[in-house]
Structure formats: C-alpha cells, structure tokens
C-alpha cells in the first residue's frame, strides 16, 4: 500500500532535522503550531521556538528581526493569512531587504476542505511570486517537502515561500529521489504532450497518464516544485519536444503555475497550452475529495485538457 502523508508533516519533520544540524535555525508560529506541525520543532528545541499568537503581521516582522541577528528564521502559519494578511510585511521588509526568512505556509488550496473559502488560499502563488527576491516552492508529497525544507533553508539565501497542504496524499517520490531547487523533476517520459504540475496535482497528473496511455497518447510529466525561479529550460525543452502543454495546479488559473508557464512560452516557444486550476472563483466547505471533483482538480479534468490541447496541436499547419 502507498504511504499517505501531508506536505505539512513533511515540513515539520524537515524542520526537526534542520534544527539538529543548524543551531541558527529558529521557528516561529502564529498559534497554529499543532496544525502546521511546527510543534515537532517546538518540543525538541523550545528555546528556539517562538509562538507569537494570532498575529501574522507581527510574525513576519519578528522573523525579519531575528534574521537580522544572523538567524535562519522559519515563520509558519496558514497560507491564506501569511500570504494575505502579512503581504505588506513580506514585501516591504522581508523581500525588499532580501532577508533570510523562510515561510512555511500550510493549509494551501481547496483541499483544506470543510473550513471553507475563508481558509482556502487559492491566490498565494500569485501573491508571492510577483514579489522581487521571493522564491516559491510547492512540494508534491511529504518526502519532497521534508527534503525541500531541509535543503533550501540552508542552501538558498533570502526569502522562500513553501506552499504546503493539509490533506494526507500518496507518496510519489522516494528517499533516493533527488530534490534540486529550481530544477523540474521528470516523473514520466512521453512525446505527445507534457503535463506540468505542482503540489497535489502531480499525483493527479500521473493518474491521467495511465488513462491516456489506453488511448495511445504518450504523456511527459514534470513535477514543477519550484515555481520561482522557474526552470525555463525544462519548459522550453518540453514545448519543443512534445509541442503541447497542460498545466495543473490547486490555485487560481490567474497568476499561478499556468500563468508562469504561459509567460515563458509566449515569449520563448509558443505552443498550444491548456490550464487546469480554479476558474476565478472562491471555494466552499466539503471534503477534500468532493472539492477536487467539484472544482475540476482531478486526473479526469487533466485528461480532458490533454485531449483538447492535442486537437489544437493537430490544427497547427507546419510552415
């Protein structure tokens, strides 16, 4: 049976490993440590953990101040509140000063579930990737989240936004799978079309591959864990190699992964592109599975997008 876990748990484990290795790591939370899983770090390193209460703006300011005393400050909270309520603090202090603050933003996307629309961050990739100096990482499973947090916090200087989920999802990568910041990971080779996915949608993309294989469509899959800085080469290469792209994300179609890919291919290598994601709407209460069905974040929706893009690809008359 496939192991199930959430990316927030992977992050919590990564922070404990990091805390053991590097004494400069401090972790902050805004009264959500049991949910964000920073409680694991808090139990092990209580003197290096600061719970600032329900105050995301102050959370970011204190993290900034700690980083200015040569600490690696990891500030954690719900993605909707850290990316929204504290956007000015992140933009004007953390990013403008290029401070060594890492943001662990959990409960991203619609799969937060029953808590409903006020708690479902569907705009955070857009909000974060538009800020200069900010880097954005969306792990596809708990293992990748653990590796990403462990490696990036030490290796990548300046602000990084980790987008993490609440739901337990199947493990896709293995202990031996390399995680390289800024490099997309090819999970499946194919020649007809490339699915570029991040987060929970990577698993859905792999399911879609199986369905499409039956129809004789050969699909390449890229796990695009680093949204910013984007692996441009991987996108251009995929566009050249397969001639059509589909993006899949648990985020608004505006400004997210699909937006980023379209910005790049429009300039570098225009090919037909279809995007799977939230279509300019808010979410609602329900189970993660029900919501993914309702909002079209499924392998089935990806397969439909693939068929559509294949038709468009065929219509292009070679010069």
């Amino acid at each position: 049976m496939v192991k199930m876990s959430s990316t927030r748990e992977g992050c919590g484990e990564g922070l404990v490993l990091l805390g053991e290795k590097n004494k400069k790591v401090v972790v902050l939370d805004a009264d959500t440590s049991c949910s964000t899983k920073t409680d694991m770090f808090a139990k092990k390193f209580p003197h290096r953990f600061f719970n600032v209460g329900v105050a995301e703006q102050n959370l970011m300011g204190i993290a900034a101040g700690l980083s200015l005393t040569d600490k690696i400050a990891f500030a954690s909270g719900y993605s909707i509140f850290v990316s929204g309520k504290a956007w000015d603090q992140i933009r004007n202090v953390i990013c403008y000063c290029n401070l060594n603050v890492k943001i662990g933003a959990t409960h991203a996307g619609i799969t937060v579930g029953a808590d409903g629309a006020t708690h479902q961050a569907l705009e955070d990739i857009a909000l974060m990737r538009v800020i200069p100096n900010m880097k954005v990482v969306v792990p596809c499973d708990a293992l990748e989240a653990r590796k990403a947090v462990f490696k990036i916090a030490e290796e990548v200087k300046g602000p990084v936004y980790f987008r993490l989920g609440r739901a337990a999802i199947p493990m896709i990568t293995h202990e031996s799978t390399p995680f390289i910041f800024g490099k997309a990971l090819t999970l499946n080779e194919g020649k007809d079309v490339t699915i570029i996915a991040c987060g929970i949608m990577v698993g859905e993309a792999l399911k879609a591959v199986e369905e499409l294989k039956k129809e004789g469509i050969s699909v390449k899959v890229l796990n695009f864990h680093t949204i910013k800085p984007p692996d441009k080469e991987a996108i251009i290469q995929a566009a050249k190699q397969t001639g059509a792209l589909v993006t899949a994300e648990e985020h608004q179609l505006i400004g997210g992964l699909g937006g980023m890919v379209s910005e790049i291919i429009a300039k570098e290598m225009p090919v037909p592109l279809e995007m799977v994601g939230i279509k300019d709407s808010f979410g609602e209460s329900g189970t993660a599975k029900e919501l993914m069905e309702k909002f079209g974040l499924t392998a089935k929706a990806i397969a439909i997008a693939v068929r559509k893009v294949m038709k468009r690809k065929k219509k292009i008359i070679p010069l």
């Binding site: 290096r48 300011g61 204190i62 005393t69």
Partner: peptide, 25 residues
C-alpha cells in the same frame, strides 16, 4: 541602515525580533 522602512507600523516587530535574537545569543 539596519532595515528598510516606510510602510508604517512595522519597525517595532522588527525590533522585537532583534531583541529576541540578541537574548538568544
């Protein structure tokens, strides 16, 4: 110049972070 400023209301949080970091060390 220790930190950028201009967006009001943020300096005291940064100062709190500074003071905590100094105490930690």
């Amino acid at each position: 110049i220790e930190v950028s400023s201009g967006s009001l209301g943020q300096g005291l949080s940064i100062a709190v972070g500074n003071a905590l970091g100094i105490k930690l060390d």
